[in-house]
Nucleic acid binder design. Structure first.
Lengths: 184, 184
DNA sequence: CTTTTCATGTAACAAGTTACATGATTTG
DNA sequence: CAAATCATGTAACTTGTTACATGAAAAG
């Protein structure tokens, strides 16, 4: 259901073809939502069928330019403030839960990799924050706020993984990997 | 694919029936991964078919007790360290991206609700952190580390939403909601 | 004239949700 | 004996991914 609104939102900012949207998904929205080509074209046809967007012109190579309709804008406005019970699903944390089943060295490696990955993400996003020529438009303002979330999330994750490594050192000496009751 | 390993991981910690696992999903793992009854029973049959778990006894009301096999443990160990290209998909941030399409008051309300929601989550998880009688076992140690992630994530999100409200105050006065070019 | 880019679609599959369906055992 | 809990499953649907299929137009 979310892709529907992601596409609608992009068309609200600016009309375009499926192909255009696909690139905008990668560029401006890539850090927030992703879509495959297949899924997007299917959804655009559904959105048009529901009257939330419409084909405004057909160009070369069968290019169909879509624009959002008034009904579409209304649907988008309603969706933005809809309460969302975010299904909890975090693969990284799921793996953390399983760490008791692997040798301690593998657990350490897991957190070391997390630190490294977070630092890469952090560097990338901080680069973006500096390099992008932010305009004074509403979409750029909110794009910047979304990016700030990414920076803070990456930084939090790095700190957490580093803290976890410390925890392993602190009480890891006293406990084995299958059970915590003292072994020696 | 992840549910497979979530189930496998729970059975690695302790054998049990589908019904047992369902409760353990809600209790110990509920903040990390969720599963519907339907999905879980289907997956347990598949896991048994693949030899990663086995039925160790059949009790009253057709209750089947499952236990992990050696092949299952090996599969779990391999999965834990598997690199994961985490598809980026964050509904909250997707909504942030769309905030330029709604009136400024609705945008403010969005961040205010985010602050409130994060604070509720934070209070709940901090309560858990204090109330749970953490044992010295490996699973509890990693459970605590996972919980710590939740606390830090909620706290980060609250701070971010508060910062965003400040940003809206700072430059919100100069820009309208459809475009940023000066209006007055 | 060949390669790249533009441009759209369908089919098969995997993962997950909701609803439906059934029945045994324990508890009050 | 009625209600709650235990216990397992199937069917229909939605969402998302991978792979397949096609072809026009622009660029070198």
């Amino acid at each position: 259901m979310s892709l529907r609104y992601a596409a609608l939102g992009l068309l609200a900012q600016h009309p375009g073809s499926g192909y255009d949207l696909l690139r905008r998904f990668e560029l401006s929205m890539g850090n927030v939502w992703s879509a495959t080509q297949s899924q997007l074209y299917t959804e655009l046809n559904k959105l048009a069928g529901d009257g939330l967007i419409e084909v405004t012109s057909v160009g070369a190579r069968g290019r169909k330019e879509y624009a959002i309709t008034e009904a579409g804008r209304a649907a988008l406005r309603a969706w933005v403030s809809e309460p969302d019970p975010e299904p909890i699903r975090n693969r990284r944390l799921l793996r953390v839960f399983m760490l008791g089943e692997v040798p301690p060295a593998q657990a350490r490696a897991f957190f070391e990799q997390t630190v490294a990955a977070s630092e890469r993400t952090l560097a990338e996003l901080q680069g973006l924050r500096e390099d992008v020529a932010w305009s004074d438009t509403a979409s750029d303002r909110y794009g910047r706020i979304a990016l700030e979330w990414g920076v803070r999330a990456a930084s939090m994750e790095r700190d957490w993984a580093q803290w976890a490594l410390g925890e392993l050192d602190a009480d890891g000496a006293s406990a084995g990997h299958d059970e915590g009751h003292s072994v020696g």
